[in-house]
């Protein structure tokens, strides 16, 4: 066992970890932050996506021991200070960009990373960016729409 000290959603925490402890385990089991989910074992589904030092990272594929001094942000740290939904979160609700909600935290974190680098992505760029985030419910249509909306753009759709 060793110790790691890091900042999670602005709060500094220190926890005992094993060498094999993954960030997602530290978050879910060590800190009770169960908004970050595990949907696969092969680093593909993206349900566990969080930000580490401002970058999108799959928390199932990084060891907690790598994170001494790191700043981690999870879905629990995404709402506005007053507790209201952030622009991206609100866009997901407004556009019905979620159904069962299981992939949603990863989708929101992934979207936030995209818009940070690319504030006005094209639809194709959004779809490409979501390559590492699987959703089985929405068919992605409304997720793409939500991300476009969060960037202040509208996706033209003939049927609407």
């Amino acid at each position: 066992m060793s110790k790691v000290t890091l900042t999670v959603n602005g709060r500094t925490v220190t926890r005992e970890i094993e060498g094999r402890t993954l960030l997602v385990q530290l978050l879910r089991e060590g800190l009770g932050l169960t908004g970050t989910h595990v949907g696969c074992d092969t680093s593909q589904c993206g349900a566990c996506l969080v930000h580490v030092n401002g970058q999108a990272v799959k928390s199932c594929s990084i060891f907690a021991a790598e994170l001494e001094g790191a700043e981690v942000r999870t879905i629990e740290g995404m709402a506005n200070r007053d507790g209201s939904l952030s622009v991206i979160q609100q866009a997901f609700q407004d556009c019905h960009g979620l159904q069962c909600g299981f992939c949603t935290p990863g989708m929101v974190m992934s979207a936030a990373a995209l818009l940070q680098d690319n504030p006005r992505p094209t639809e194709a760029e959004v779809r490409h960016h979501l390559e590492g985030n699987l959703c089985r419910c929405t068919g992605y249509h409304n997720i793409v729409k939500a991300i476009m909306a969060a960037s202040g753009q509208d996706v033209a759709m003939a049927a609407e």
């Binding site: 939904l85 979160q89 909600g101």
Partner: peptide, 18 residues
């Protein structure tokens, strides 16, 4: 708008593994 979305969007959903 879906009322359940607020908990899902803020990481407050309660799934069985939670």
């Amino acid at each position: 708008k879906r009322r359940e979305d607020v908990r899902f969007l803020t990481g407050k959903g309660r799934y069985t593994d939670d």
